[in-house]
Nucleic acid binder design. Structure first.
Lengths: 331, 331
DNA sequence: ATGAAAGCGCTAACAG
DNA sequence: CTGTTAGCGCTTTCAT
């Protein structure tokens, strides 16, 4: 890799001049510029981003971090894509970390992000009191939370109305005539898990249905727990008629158990899931689901982050996007 | 963020000493070490990875790059996880880039990787003659290819026996009695697309079935093209009885078209796909598919890369893993 | 309009 | 065993 110095030598100017033609487009004699540009081309010079970041100040490093809880979850894949596209449009690179729902790994990634001199961070914190992220916000690093907020500090956040989304799903189930409806949540410490539970209960309450704690259960937001909890629910003496599953991986796990038992959907058991996937129509049967705009969330979060970087003192904003109930055939 | 200098001041030693207790565990007076460790703890010091990378030589920077063609494809998500887990076990960070099947974006990412001073790169090149990646291999950067190799240079590569995997799938279809079998491939310039086509033709030939070019088509390896090409195939005057789809996104697209037309699988049209997903059992109907071990591919590639970094002159090796045909109900 | 030089935070000779 | 110092590649005053 050619360095600035080599370019300078080849062009017969100082490194400062080369740096100027690269960044600071004023005050350059046009002949000098030509010479430099020629040398750059000949050597196929590319600035060393590491040296650049070491030297540059906050907000000019062209690198942001993105920390997601589970890359196997297609929702976060959409968020990642939304962030990346927006960042690249602004010539920023994105350092993505997947902490796989492991708080230890989350901390490790946070350490890496800090020491990689990023301009800002987009993160879906493990839980609302996440002290590592809270400290980082307090340290002044521009941060935007996605999917979940933080309770101990005022921070920018982009998410959906989980309570409303869940309410809509369960209300639809009730309107379809189902009475015993179970909720299979993810990790209880994740805010969305509880918000969706609230929405579930809101709907039950509105229609005067009892809230039966036997029908409310929590797992770890992954496929396996969806599979296992569905089995437990179906083993109940008085099993539910319908399932409201708390995220897409849980939904997939639930479907697996139902299919293994040769139960018919929705005749034997109905299901509506939180999180739609573009291939939900190809599931057996086509899934009724609450769609959240993952790509849009990522995009908005990135835009918000860039704004925050530019104007660090503007007060944090909360952006709540809408969910949409996609009606298909699973209930 | 505290710096080495601040730690040194607090501990009353030189920066060199602090650096030594951090890296170079020999030759340190135990009292000195204690003082330094205390200061490190008090200041909550973390080394600045950017400064470290700028200073360090090849192979010691604890950062590798990973460039994948499509993060929306669950296969690559598995590869990413395999690479990450292996890298983290060795205390390396992974810079992941998703070029979304866009050669321009691939080049951009390659530039970023180069200028981020990585120790090595794992990449699934756009095509076999990918000159950017080829040049990078020739430049001496340790590189391991996954999923696809390079024809113009001898390089390490981890992939599966695509031809055999495709052969097994199509042979199974033939044994089930299907005679008019179509192949829906991805981008024709991707090596796996053509290898899978070879396997498809091998099977047809072995059983004396004609190779009908009307039944062989290519798209762009994404959901939409699977959807569209399936529609075209079904519109043929003499449509196929079975589909062999070239990757998981194409499969999902094909299923969508089939379901939209209210066709029954496998009675009206059978399907077997390349790439299994853990939720393939929940598709309508449970999908018969060729499984490739994505996680394992990522893991092996990372191990191979670390070896290459340690011993840059060892001759490149090709590792070919096996596929497995998972028989379910779609044919 | 251009160059010299400081310095970002760190590691690794080299000297003692 | 420890300190001093050069230098990784870059940007940015400060001079000129």
């Amino acid at each position: 890799m050619a360095s600035l110095k080599e370019v300078a030598e080849k062009a017969g100017v100082s490194v400062a001049t080369v740096s100027r033609v690269l960044n600071d487009r004023r005050y350059i004699n046009s002949e000098t510029r030509l010479k430099v540009e020629k040398a750059i081309k000949q050597l196929n010079y590319r600035p060393n981003r590491v040296a650049q970041r070491l030297r540059l100040k906050d907000g000019q490093r062209k690198l942001i971090g993105l920390l997601v809880p589970d890359i196997q979850n297609p929702f976060y894949v959409d968020v990642i894509r939304g962030v990346e596209e927006t960042a690249y449009a602004r010539d920023h690179a994105v350092f993505v970390g997947n902490f796989a729902q492991d708080e230890g790994k989350e901390k490790m990634y946070l350490d890496i992000m800090k020491s990689e001199s990023i301009d800002g961070l987009i993160v879906a914190p493990s839980h609302e009191k996440d002290s590592e992220v809270t400290n980082l916000v307090n340290s002044g690093l521009p941060i935007v939370c996605v999917d979940r907020g933080l309770s101990e500090v005022d921070v920018d956040v982009v998410l959906v109305d989980n309570r409303k989304g869940a309410f809509d799903a369960v209300e639809y189930l009730i309107q379809k005539g189902y009475k015993r409806i179970a909720y299979i949540g993810g990790l209880p410490q994740i805010p969305t898990t509880m918000q969706r539970k609230e929405g579930y209960e809101d709907a039950l309450r509105k229609y005067g249905l009892p809230i039966d704690t036997d029908l409310i259960c929590f797992g770890d937001s992954k496929h396996e727990s969806g599979k296992k909890l569905t089995a437990e629910l179906l083993n109940l003496p008085n099993p539910p008629q319908a399932l409201f599953t708390g995220n897409n991986l849980i939904t997939l796990g639930a479907l697996e158990t139902i299919h293994n038992r040769k139960l018919r959907i929705p005749q034997d058991i109905a299901i509506v899931g939180f999180d739609d996937m573009y291939w939900s129509i190809s599931l057996n049967p086509p899934l009724t689901a609450v769609r959240q705009p993952g790509f849009e969330i990522g995009k908005r979060a990135a835009e918000m982050l860039f704004q925050k970087v530019k104007e660090p003192d503007r007060p944090p904003v909360k952006l709540m996007l809408k969910t949409e109930l996609i009606k298909r055939e699973s209930c």
